[in-house]
């Protein structure tokens, strides 16, 4: 029996008089990859923030396993130009890491040689990888990724997810991610939560993609996404990943 890392029980969250999440029950267990999908404003980020204790429940509870080490990669991190920060210093927050550990972490994240650069001078992709490197330095049992590939191009995103897969393999940590890249994500996850203020449906990627609630939210085009993905799996032709239209054609 795998250990449960986080338990959400009948969780409701309100902000500014608006209900963002309602009656959410979910658990995350050791080593599994859970993906949260849902339309804009469906409470995906809030759910992650509730898991780390940043969003307070109006009702219900969030329970973390004892001494749970969490690595968190936020959706975006706006670094104020007034704050000087080298990559090495950033990796040492809040706990100091040795130069050797920092070099190894950056190597693993695929961005060696950045150690002495200023954070504000990094490109979007480099920044995202440094964030990941920092999260991994905490040796997390649970890695939370909030739209971690935002701002990356398709090859960049694909490389990022490959790296995530490798991380799970190496560290054996559980991963909870929010993503828009439906086809990539669906393929990589053990379990999918489909969210729209509440949990509409959940289960294996295939069963969720077939669920009427999911299709009501994303339309039949996403069924096409699955098909596209499966198609993509055996071939490596060029695809127009961004366009729903071509995905529907592929359906």
């Amino acid at each position: 029996m795998k250990r449960t890392l986080i338990t959400l029980k009948d969780l409701s969250i309100r902000a500014d008089g608006r209900t963002i999440l309602e009656h959410v029950n979910a658990t995350v267990s050791e080593g599994e990859i859970v993906t949260i999908v849902g339309p804009n404003g469906s409470g995906k980020s809030t759910l992650l923030r509730a898991m780390i204790g940043a969003a307070l429940p109006a009702h219900g509870t969030v329970k973390q396993a004892k001494n749970l080490r969490i690595g968190y990669v936020p959706q975006k991190l706006a670094l104020d130009a007034a704050l000087p920060m080298t990559v090495q210093r950033f990796l040492s927050l809040p706990r100091r890491v040795s130069a050797r550990d920092a070099i190894t972490a950056l190597d693993h994240a695929g961005v060696p040689d950045l150690r002495n650069r200023q954070m504000t001078k990094l490109s979007g992709g480099q920044f995202q990888r440094v964030l990941l490197a920092r999260a991994l330095l905490e040796k997390p049992q649970l890695l939370l990724l909030d739209e971690a590939t935002q701002g990356l191009d398709q090859p960049g995103a694909a490389a990022f997810y490959q790296r995530i897969e490798q991380v799970r393999h190496d560290l054996g940590c559980a991963i909870v991610m929010v993503s828009h890249d439906l086809h990539v994500v669906m393929a990589a996850s053990d379990r999918v939560l489909c969210l729209n203020g509440h949990i509409c449906c959940e289960g294996s990627p295939r069963s969720v993609a077939d669920a009427p609630e999911y299709r009501a939210l994303f339309g039949s085009g996403t069924k096409g996404t699955m098909a596209l993905y499966q198609h993509q799996h055996s071939h490596s032709h060029d695809h127009d990943h961004g366009s729903t239209l071509s995905q529907e054609k592929a359906d």
Binding site: R49, A54, I70, L77, L93, P94, R95
Partner: peptide, 19 residues
Amino acid sequence: WSALLVSTLNPDLAYASGI
């Protein structure tokens, strides 16, 4: 110092580190 720095960078990063 360290806790304040993380909180200043991003409150959510702080929460995730137990700050």
